[in-house]
């Protein structure tokens, strides 16, 4: 796993840095893949899903993939496995199950 700094060819000296840890581009979190933090994996079942989008709005990592207003899956490159989506999923649907990550 590399973060945005390490993707530079080399680590910079302090004299070369912009003041205050400023990064001269936006949305750098896209370069910081947090998926390998996960110990529990959310597994989504399309059949059970009632498309309420509660999981999408509560996921702290924007890891619920949505297309045309519908959940299409989970982005495991960023999902940290917090389980909020599974908790928030309405009981009658229970469309997300948390399972242990295997090596």
């Amino acid at each position: 796993m590399k973060d945005v700094h390490v993707e530079c060819q080399r680590l910079m000296d302090w004299q070369e840095l912009a003041k205050g840890c400023l990064i001269q581009e936006a949305a750098t979190s896209l370069n910081f893949k947090t998926g390998d933090w996960r110990s529990m994996r959310p597994v989504w079942s399309e059949d059970k899903c009632i498309q309420c989008l509660f999981c999408w709005i509560t996921c702290p990592d924007s890891a619920i993939k949505v297309k045309d207003g519908k959940v299409t899956g989970i982005d495991y490159e960023f999902c940290k496995g917090c389980g909020i989506c599974a908790q928030i999923c309405p009981e009658k649907a229970s469309a997300i199950e948390m399972i242990r990550e295997e090596k």
Partner: peptide
């Protein structure tokens, strides 16, 4: 657009 106040770990915090 830029990124202000990002997480800054062992590799750069000291330099900043």
């Amino acid at each position: 657009p830029k990124t202000y106040g990002p997480l800054d770990l062992q590799d750069y915090f000291f330099e900043h």
